[in-house]
Write a protein that binds this DNA or RNA. Structure first.
Lengths: 353, 353
DNA sequence: ATTTTGAATGTTAGCGCTACCATTCAAACA
DNA sequence: TGTTTGAATGGTAGCGCTAACATTCAAAAT
């Protein structure tokens, strides 16, 4: 790591005949490997990338040479020459929220198995830096871009389309996807939760929801279904994204003060729900006897809260894997027949509702 | 995104004289920009990378040309030519745990401001795939590698040293850093917590701890200090990493069954502590009256639990920023005088202990 | 008037790899 | 026997950019 002094040869001589060029990293290149293996550079390249097109003998010699020299291919050079960077950009609002982590993790792992790396981009919830970020991403010439929980500006959308890079939008079923999409319907989630609560006998439905776009869709679905079912939405509290345990506590306090008769709370995230449970506990209100609590996300802790949390499960892992599959398909030149995949969701019934 | 057919010119002609090469991405290059601006390619390059070395006039013309053509520099080509990829690899055990998120987020943001992107690598807690991952990373020729919460194998360590890429280890103060390091002493954390609890009057100290390396160091510091202070460690429960709310609940059950008289629990993460609080609530045991609970990490929710959680605060944000600073310094060719930075920690006193 | 400077620009030659188009040469065929 | 095939290999020419050196030409110094 430190600047290690280049050792000169034992017997001091005049400047070596074949001076190393001052350019380049000085590390081992494919040509070096080829020389050691006694083949041409292109054969060495094929041995590494398309081993089936090379003879047994050449393959073995190249592989030996690689392990003897400790050669690691320079993917910048490879990417430049082949127009395939094997990089995929993952764009999230922020990595700090737990919601999309499962997706990013699955995406990273699935892509790594196919030899792709993930480049991380955080747009922030504001979308202000989105343009600069997009330039930084496009500049790397990624083989794909995965948008997770991102509301892209019209301008950004246009830029993405113009580049021709495969794009996968996730976590939402928009009517007009940029390219490919894997998600589920947030409105249907809201409706399903309302139906569940009403059929369980709850009649005074309330909601604590983040002010982001997808949470808004769930709220709409919830409210519409509640109205359709003849109970309506008796109260709502909106909190800023990203949600916290604290905003859940606040949400319940707020609801109780304004709508003391409500008997069920649909929260736009499990974190909010946990906050609601916490506040209920602090006020000595028992859940679900006094009111039901419904979460969203089925995060890791949902089965271990007290009471355990009834929530909506979304398979973030599957979303990540499917996104990876989409990208790899495209990168290898195949066309994707079904560009939109609805992964659906399920209700996980536990004790809180 | 889709395969858009290349439109031929209006009037069908014979094969155009200057056929486009079948290679290349077909997108706008720096030469195109230079041509539009009426300067040479290198001047255009300088206008973009070192604007101060170019005349006012040339700068303006190049910038106009860039915005007219929608040019985005190809960083693969730039990186190859200059041996500076402006990529930084961030290695974490898994992105799914909340502990290092703050660090990764801060790192990504700070680096983005200096024009660097972050490439994500997940080693898994096992460290089995670590070697392949290391190859994938080195292949990108990153300008730096940030190790967060990673126990690197001796072999991996050797490889990293051999490449000469700047390395920053974080979240731990190891006695023999590979290169640069920003962290704090986990043993001192353990000792500080023990001292705090003893001076607050607790005498039967117990611990619920994950089985990872750093948690082990905190436990050691805790146990040593407890012994030194004459109270000792009365009980311990070890759970597998990564920690969950569920393992916290289990931990408390386990401790209570084996050491019913214990009066304080130090948890190796806030998540575990939240689990302990949850289990206490489920058993109707009041905290801190029956026993104290101490966390680690000061995650976002710690101030909003019931009771609020006394914990150890580590500034993950500062760690990420400092790591970014280290990498950028090195990448720009400066040498870093102080290679090891101890960011320390602080105890956040709340209600649970 | 001549030299010296240095800022601005340009020319050339790669960076390390792979696409494309040969070429070779054995086995398979007519 | 000559021809066709196709698998294996190699040579060449870039991919889009920048380091290193070369050149130009005005202003400053002699």
């Amino acid at each position: 790591m430190s600047e290690q002094s280049t050792r000169t040869s034992e017997t001091p001589t005049l400047v070596s005949k074949e001076r190393r060029s001052r350019r380049g990293s000085g590390s081992i290149t494919l040509s070096d490997v080829a020389k050691v293996a006694g083949v041409s550079a292109i054969t060495a390249s094929r041995a590494l990338n398309t081993p089936e097109r090379v003879s047994r003998d050449a393959l073995k010699r190249v592989r030996d040479a690689v392990s003897r020299t400790g050669y690691v291919p320079n993917m910048l050079a490879g990417g430049l020459a082949s127009s395939r960077s094997r990089l995929v950009a993952a764009l999230v609002p922020t990595i700090a929220g737990p919601v999309f982590l499962e997706t990013v993790q699955a995406l990273t792992e699935a892509l790594a198995e196919s030899g792709y790396q993930v480049m991380l981009g955080q747009s922030g919830y504001s979308g202000a830096r989105e343009d600069a970020l997009l330039d930084a991403i496009i500049g790397r010439r990624p083989d794909g871009i995965v948008l997770t929980g991102i509301m892209h500006s019209a301008e950004g959308r246009r830029r993405l389309l113009a580049t021709g890079i495969p794009v996968v939008e996730t976590w939402d079923l928009t009517p007009t996807p940029i390219d490919m999409l894997v998600g589920f319907s947030h409105e249907k989630v809201g409706a399903a939760v309302a139906e569940y609560l009403v059929s369980a006998g709850y009649k005074k439905l309330a909601i604590v929801t983040a002010d982001d776009h997808r949470a808004g869709l769930r709220r709409k679905g919830f409210e519409d279904a509640a109205t359709r079912l003849g109970v309506g939405l008796v109260g709502a509290c909106t909190v800023p994204a990203p949600t916290t345990l604290g905003s859940g506590r606040f949400g319940l306090s707020d609801l109780l003060s304004r709508f003391p008769h409500m008997d069920a709370v649909f929260c736009s995230s499990d974190i909010l729900a946990l906050g609601v449970l916490t506040e209920a506990q602090a006020r000595n209100l028992s859940v679900p006897a006094r009111f039901a609590v419904f979460g969203f996300g089925d995060l890791g802790f949902a089965g271990d809260t007290f009471p355990t949390l009834t929530t909506v499960r979304v398979d973030g892992n599957a979303i990540g894997h499917q996104a990876a599959r989409f990208i790899v398909e495209r990168a290898e030149g195949r066309t994707v027949a079904e560009r939109v995949i609805d992964l659906g969701f399920s209700i996980v019934k536990r004790d809180s509702a």
